[in-house]
Nucleic acid binder design. Structure first.
Lengths: 192, 192
DNA sequence: GTCTATAAGCCGATAGAC
DNA sequence: GTCTATCGGCTTATAGAC
């Protein structure tokens, strides 16, 4: 029945999410995913056309989850736009402080697929990052920042740089410094 | 004789450099590297203990090459610190405009090895990024910026964010916006 | 829709010759 | 220091049964 089909597919995506994020896409075999999901490979290939197909679905499923986390930390913080941005970076600091944190899954997947620009997972990564930047631009615009698009891009770049660097150095001081710079740029933009 | 040994080893590293950067570390086989270098696998394993060994040497060899490129664009530009930083971002714009550009090799390698924190290649990536940041801090300090370390880190984060994002979007507008923000932060820091 | 079994090939690494 | 040959295992994906 339909119910069972959906559960199985979601269980496979859940397993892929954990394994892909932990060890990377190419280092994770279909065998390992099927085993973790508790299904055989035959079942796996019933639900997914190929491993590439699963990779794309894995990233697409992460898009709204990550975006909602950003929005939540922003919306929950009361005060001016500088305070709200500070809250966003603080929530990233908290997320990246976990020992299980292994960088940004979108960045890492894009890195692994760098030689396949048309890959659906690459499009999913691009789409997600555009969504984050567009959300920032929308909020900045609503908070009276005239050059909202440019400022949003600058804040976005600081965030991405910190995510990338913290994967390499495992030092949360980078997201803090990124937050300081972001607040500086936003405050500066409000006054113009 | 020693001469021949050195040439062979360098030829293998050259081949690895091209293939690793093009397709990624895990997607590149030792077979493919040996073939491109024009040696057999037996010869490969005479010069390198393992594939992991080669990965580390590949990144270590890139450290000074990249760093010198940064320094050159900075030193060649005459004028104040803002102009020099603008020149650095402009040189990155030029480098990332090539169709063969596939992101930052250090970021991509670190992403693939995210689950192996002690891997020598991860240490090489960390070391390289620290060198870039430390070089910026040194220059900022010499150019009379009081909070040189913090400003250097902010500029570094903008650079890293742009490199990461351009791999995903293939849009050089990001390095331009990063450059604008960097100049803004540096100019602001000079005045304090 | 899920199972067992297996294809066909590529992976990193090694053996022995010279 | 470089060659040919090959190991054992893992890879994505498929075949046929129920």
């Amino acid at each position: 029945m339909k119910q069972a089909k959906t559960n199985t597919k979601e269980r496979i995506i859940d397993a892929a999410n954990k394994l892909f994020y932990l060890a990377g896409i190419r280092a994770t075999s279909v065998d390992a995913i099927a085993e973790k999901a508790g299904v055989t490979k035959r079942t796996f290939y019933y639900h997914f056309q190929s491993k590439d197909d699963l990779i794309a679905e894995y990233l697409s499923a992460r898009d709204q989850i990550n975006l909602k986390a950003f929005k939540a930390s922003f919306d929950e913080q009361k005060g001016d736009i500088a305070k709200k941005i500070r809250a966003v970076f603080k929530s990233v600091l908290k997320a990246t402080s976990h020992t299980k944190w292994r960088g940004c899954g979108f960045q890492r997947t894009a890195g692994e697929l760098a030689n396949k620009p048309g890959h659906p997972a690459m499009k999913a990564a691009s789409s997600h990052k555009k969504n984050v930047e567009a959300w920032l631009a929308k909020e900045f615009n609503q908070h009276g920042i005239t050059n909202a698009a440019a400022t949003a891009r600058q804040v976005f770049l600081l965030l991405e740089g910190a995510l990338s660097t913290m994967l390499i150095h495992h030092d949360t001081a980078y997201i803090e410094e990124a937050g300081h710079a972001a607040v500086l740029l936003v405050t500066n933009a409000v006054q113009h």
